Simulated scan of single mutants.
Amino acid sequence: MKLAEALTERADAQRRVEQLRSRITANARYQEGEEPAEDAAALLAEAEQVLTRLRTLIARINRTNSTVDLGPDGTMTDALATRDVLRLRHSVLTSAADAASGHGVRQLRSELRQLTALPVKALRAQADDVARELRTLDGRIQQANWTHELLEQGPVGSR
């Protein structure tokens, strides 16, 4: 199984757990004299099976990510950390540029003039550079996801 396939399966399992959680809570109590729409105990057992599979997938994905070498980006784990920080950096820069430009702020003539404390043009250029770097890194991550096999499950607690 390719890493990308495991990531898709992990996302499906996470969604399934959330759906089951919602159905369990909706059927955990019912009115006397009526029957619940679904068997909450059976749903709970199904959730446990999905969670067991999810734990195995996450462990295998993490094990694989720590061994996949992306060259100058380090391991896949390193690249994922870099990608997360790039996303945050882009968000901070665009928020700062929006705030400094007065984006969404209306000013009346009777109010005191507001001045910008940050260089909006430079912030937007920086945000564009970060977005470009993020897209490039994300492309390398996606390529690796489709070219690397998921490592087998080792013993619990081992590396």
Rank of each mutant, 00 (worst) to 15 (best):
T94G: 07
V92W: 05
P72F: 02
P72G: 05
A97I: 08
L93T: 08
V85C: 07
A81V: 13
G71E: 03
A96L: 13
D84Q: 14
H90S: 14
M76D: 00
P72E: 15
V85H: 12
D84M: 04
S91F: 11
D78L: 04
L88N: 15
L86S: 06
D84S: 15
A79M: 01
G71S: 04
T94F: 02
G74S: 01
D73N: 15
V92A: 07
H90N: 14
D78E: 09
R89W: 03
D73I: 02
A97Q: 08
R89I: 11
T75R: 05
D73W: 06
T77Q: 08
D98N: 14
T75G: 01
T67M: 13
S95D: 15
T82G: 03
T82K: 09
M76E: 01
S95G: 12
R83F: 09
L86K: 01
V92G: 02
V85Y: 11
D78M: 03
T77Y: 01
L80N: 05
H90V: 09
L93M: 12
G71P: 02
L70N: 05
T82C: 05
R87A: 10
A96Q: 14
V92Y: 07
A96T: 12
H90P: 04
T77R: 04
S95L: 12
S91P: 00
R83A: 12
R83M: 10
S95W: 09
T75Q: 03
T75H: 03
A79T: 02
L86P: 10
A97L: 07
D84P: 05
A79L: 00
L80Q: 05
A97H: 09
S95F: 10
T94D: 07
V68I: 14
L80S: 05
A81T: 12
T75K: 05
A79D: 02
R89P: 07
G74I: 00
D73Q: 13
R89L: 13
R89F: 01
R87H: 08
A97F: 06
M76G: 00
